[in-house]
């Protein structure tokens, strides 16, 4: 419940303050968001499986974001930034799908 309120508050702050992305972070923010989404769905699944641990969630969230951004950053330096960000999105997309599938099994027993 409190995390959901946090999410809504974040969205509200974003809408209200009309911020702009600093140029430095522009290529990395989208990837970082996808990585964070993966951690969030993973956390939801862990809650329903009864294995949720706050420390694990926080560390997986932060490390997901940092590693995803880092991979894209290194890719950019190597000149394969767009290809590597595609790779990261594909991998995280597959994980999000499998986590959502697990949630679906919990909710609908199907």
């Amino acid at each position: 419940m409190i995390p959901a309120i946090g999410l809504l508050a974040g969205i509200a702050i974003g809408i209200f303050f009309k911020p702009t992305v600093p140029i430095l972070f522009q290529p990395y923010l989208p990837i970082a968001i996808v990585a964070a989404l993966d951690a969030v769905f993973g956390g939801l699944r862990a809650v329903l499986d009864g294995v949720f641990h706050d420390k694990v969630f926080v560390i997986s969230f932060v490390s997901n974001v940092v590693i995803a951004a880092l991979i894209v950053f290194i890719g950019d330096q190597l000149g394969v930034g767009s290809q590597l960000s595609t790779a990261v999105v594909v991998v995280l997309g597959i994980r999000i799908f499998s986590n959502v599938a697990a949630l679906r099994r919990h909710f609908f027993h199907a």
């Binding site: 419940m1 409190i2 995390p3 959901a4 309120i5 946090g6 999410l7 809504l8 508050a9 974040g10 969205i11 509200a12 702050i13 974003g14 809408i15 911020p19 923010l29 970082a32 968001i33 964070a36 989404l37 951690a39 969030v40 956390g43 949720f52 641990h53 706050d54 420390k55 969630f57 926080v58 969230f61 932060v62």
Partner: peptide, 17 residues
């Protein structure tokens, strides 16, 4: 744990918008 998750999700919501 809930508070920590709330803070992270706040950042996620903000970043997404």
């Amino acid at each position: 744990g809930e508070i920590a998750a709330a803070i992270l999700l706040l950042l996620l919501g903000y970043g997404t918008v």
